[in-house]
Design a protein around this nucleic acid. Sequence first.
DNA 1: ACAAGGATCCTCT
DNA 2: GAGGATCCTTGTT
Length: 200
Amino acid sequence: MNLLPESFAAADPAATARALLGQHLVRDGVVLRITETEAYGADDDTASHAHRGRTPRNAPMFGPPGRAYVYLCYGIHHLLNVTCGPDGRAGAVLIRACEPVEGLDLVRERRGGKDGPVLLTGPGKVGAALDLDTGWSGHPLWQPGGLELRTGPVVTEAVVGPRIGIGYAEPACQEAPLRFAVAGSRWVSHRRGLRPERSG
DNA sequence: ACAAGGATCCTCT
DNA sequence: GAGGATCCTTGTT
């Protein structure tokens, strides 16, 4: 599969989050198919790290698209985002869950010998499976080598729902349907609150 | 220099 | 379903 171009993530966070479903994350012979994402916006999104402005940590969100934004959550977990939108407009897509495609043995090893969907259904688990840390923040995902974003099979049917774990945000932001998942996939962290993406 | 809190995960019950 | 782990980032003094 081919590397995704930088322009792949040039659209707004919601469109990029939907388009990332089915694409592949590659590192160290580990290939993961993205099954669940969340979109995070700029200052108007009170759930987003960017809503209080630029800081050293969230700087990649304000830069050009197609880079990694990795941060430490709860002092333990490294969470991976893909920056999106034009340079200067903050935006990122959190990778919440994946399905293994290659390198399953290494993923199991990095995940304490576990097996099945528990391996990769959760953003902290994805970070562990790819052995990420904050040193990867800002890394261009469209360059060969290191951590890469490559094309995967197209996802024709998706489900959408509110984002997870953002109780600190304003109600309108909590309720916004900015979480996306592959319809029918077992490799999704939480099934609750998801509905077909086509309006109805 | 200090205090507060978090885009989570795991282990219980 | 509930609670603890664990430490960095941030805003404030």
